[in-house]
Design a protein around this nucleic acid. Sequence first.
DNA 1: CTGAAAGCGCTAACAT
DNA 2: ATGTTAGCGCTTTCAG
Lengths: 326, 326
Amino acid sequence: MRDVARAAGVSQTTVSFVLNEVPDVHIGQATRERVLATIEQLGYRPNAVARGLRRAKTDTIGFIWHDPASLAGRMVQGAQEAACARGSLVLLAGTGGDVLVEQNAGATLIDRRVDGIVCATRDHRVVAPAGHLRSVPSVLLGCEAADQSVPAVVADQAAAALEGTSRMFRTGRQRVAFLSAAVGTPTTRSRLAGYRRALVTRGVRYEHGLVRRCRGERAAYDATRSLMAEPHPPDGLLCHDLEIAAGAYRAISDARLAIPGDIAVVAFDDHEVSASLLHPALSTIGLPHYEMGRLAVETLFEFITADAVPGGQRRVHCPYYERQSV
Amino acid sequence: MRDVARAAGVSQTTVSFVLNEVPDVHIGQATRERVLATIEQLGYRPNAVARGLRRAKTDTIGFIWHDPASLAGRMVQGAQEAACARGSLVLLAGTGGDVLVEQNAGATLIDRRVDGIVCATRDHRVVAPAGHLRSVPSVLLGCEAADQSVPAVVADQAAAALEGTSRMFRTGRQRVAFLSAAVGTPTTRSRLAGYRRALVTRGVRYEHGLVRRCRGERAAYDATRSLMAEPHPPDGLLCHDLEIAAGAYRAISDARLAIPGDIAVVAFDDHEVSASLLHPALSTIGLPHYEMGRLAVETLFEFITADAVPGGQRRVHCPYYERQSV
DNA sequence: CTGAAAGCGCTAACAT
DNA sequence: ATGTTAGCGCTTTCAG
């Protein structure tokens, strides 16, 4: 920068001013152009590290990343693109799901003076935000703070379950069952809530026996067979994921029933190839990872600029992909 | 840091020395412990930005990311974890596949004074590395420089095609066909080379007619039917991806042939759920994204520390996942 | 073994 | 409208 100043015959200050287009300072047209030309000519590029030190702002947002699953990649991508659109970059800090490492990751990011942090945990779990998430603007992604003290962006799983279930009702189904996951997480709870709301909306009584918890293709197969063997078998099936849907498909096929003729199926976790591999192609509910990452960063920027914590929780709509199973 | 020095009754220099465990400087045991205690007590953490400015080393590596596909997430993760293991963080810079934006991304990362850059492009394409990739230690990921001037990490697709094809020969197949992709990319060329090498190894003549280019399930279906209708239909099929394998499966099923009894199938792009959805479960060749990301960063560190460009190209083994289709 | 002091490259009062 | 100057928080000679 000194070189530029010298070559253009001005002071460093002037160079800095033209570079930053400081609002209250007007630089003479001639000077400005001379400086700009010199910058161009010398190929000068400001040192972002030095600028960050001085401004106490690094134009960098930290992304804490717990999820080893590949889908998280879309979240990171969404975050990265949203940040980029605002002139910031994303600094990644992973934790192999380890909570101790998580503390560390947050601290490390703060050491680097990131302007804010997006903290993405797996599986929508409620977290007690670590101290450092309070010391710098932060937003949770895919989970929420137990005390709502940190804003969060989550997939609207309840609405998604409601929609998936309602779609089946709307094609005339009377009894929709829910093949849920084995473990009770916030995700499964939200989905169950949505499922129940769909029943209420439809004026159908909730039956405990229509909700089965299972894990894996095999368990889903068994659960479906068991459901089909009941006096009043279901004519619709909401599945927690693709593997479960696969098990259900197999059971339905073995029972010589037709999809969607005899029974409709909808599953969470859209995966184009897998969904199309099933016959008939499976209608799915997608998890909007990209959009979640994007919105988390947008929210973070609001937080940073408004200097006020944005409202508690933002839910992102989960798209429904209609294929042939409903 | 000044506060720590003051509270411990020493100079900043001393604090810096104990913090960095400078080799040639020995600090008295008592002083060191006092300083450490004070640091702990005050909860002091060094400012990484200031340190970066002074040391001209940021412990950050840049990752240029072209690929909008979700699988790239695993590469980023591999890179991130490898970097983390060496005390560095990954700074992301995406480009929507746009070359102009790419120039920019590289420049932005250099402005941030990253210690090195990993540049990941989609689809193994040969690139003429932009100037900035030469001005800072860089390694290409998933592609290679036309002039080999920049080290590269790629999946060993030729070896993978060789292995997949050979596996089929080893179960007694005589004629293995290759359903390749529609476009001629370095990826498809490498795979074809591997396929041909497998033929040579087996002592089988290459037949142009056994290699079909297709894109999508439907095209694969047609290509397979056409192959099966020939006088000497193949008894083995190497598929470019899962969609193509799906089309092949359908065609084989329609032709009332059995997998693997009448014909064996192997496909690139391992995806557990999809592969298991097919009946019989499809044997696949995985693309080692995580490992590639990891190795790219390892290579980059060699580059940075050895201050010498590591040898041209590193190929990562692609794992073969045996299921029931061979 | 420890401290004083210079400076990394930039920004932003404050002067002129 | 432009220049002078004092740091941002740290590392690192060089003296003591």
